[in-house]
Amino acid sequence: MSETRDTRLRRLNMRSMRRGTKEMDILLMRYSAERLADLSDAELDAYEALLDENDQDIYQWISQQKPSPSEHEPMVADIIRIAANG
């Protein structure tokens, strides 16, 4: 049985909050709270793919210490935009 959108949003929200590093918890919890419900299914797929990456890599991409891989660029840019408006 495939999960409902609501179940998927709750699952991704939980994954955003329990990353393993406090920095990523804070950044992704904020992003999740502000944007997750408004994302399209394709954008949720992209976010879920980003969550599958290593926290240290994601942090370096968001903090712009290293460029993000092209497949994650739009999502990382959106997270940076939300973080900058905080």
Rank of each mutant, 00 (worst) to 15 (best):
S2I: 03
S2W: 07
E3V: 13
E3Y: 03
E3F: 00
E3P: 08
R5A: 11
D6K: 10
T7A: 08
L9Y: 02
R10P: 11
R11G: 00
R11T: 09
R11K: 07
L12Q: 01
N13D: 12
M14I: 10
M14P: 05
R15Y: 05
S16H: 04
S16F: 08
S16V: 15
M17N: 07
R18G: 10
R19S: 14
R19P: 14
R19H: 14
R19K: 03
G20Y: 10
G20H: 11
T21N: 05
T21V: 15
K22Y: 15
E23N: 08
D25L: 11
D25V: 06
D25A: 03
I26G: 11
I26S: 01
I26P: 13
L27G: 01
L28K: 06
M29V: 05
M29A: 13
Y31K: 04
Y31I: 08
Y31N: 03
S32N: 01
S32G: 09
S32T: 00
A33D: 14
A33R: 12
E34S: 14
E34A: 13
E34K: 07
R35S: 10
R35Y: 00
R35N: 06
L36E: 01
A37Q: 14
A37I: 15
A37D: 12
A37F: 09
A37W: 12
A37M: 08
D38G: 02
L39E: 11
S40M: 09
S40E: 10
D41Q: 07
A42L: 02
E43H: 01
E43I: 01
E43N: 06
E43T: 04
L44N: 04
L44W: 07
D45T: 07
A49N: 01
A49T: 08
A49W: 06
L50S: 00
L50H: 03
L50Y: 08
L51T: 13
D52I: 14
E53F: 13
E53A: 15
E53S: 14
N54V: 15
D55H: 13
Q56F: 15
Q56P: 03
D57Y: 11
D57G: 10
D57Q: 15
I58E: 02
I58A: 09
I58D: 00
Y59Q: 13
W61I: 07
W61S: 09
I62F: 10
I62P: 00
S63F: 09
S63H: 08
Q64A: 13
K66W: 04
K66T: 11
K66A: 12
P67A: 12
S68R: 02
S68M: 04
S68G: 12
S70E: 14
S70T: 15
S70H: 03
E71I: 06
H72W: 03
P74W: 02
P74N: 01
M75R: 00
V76F: 01
V76I: 15
V76N: 04
A77P: 11
I79T: 04
I80F: 01
R81Y: 09
I82E: 12
I82F: 00
A83Y: 00
A83L: 03
A84H: 05
A84D: 08
N85S: 12
G86L: 10
G86W: 07
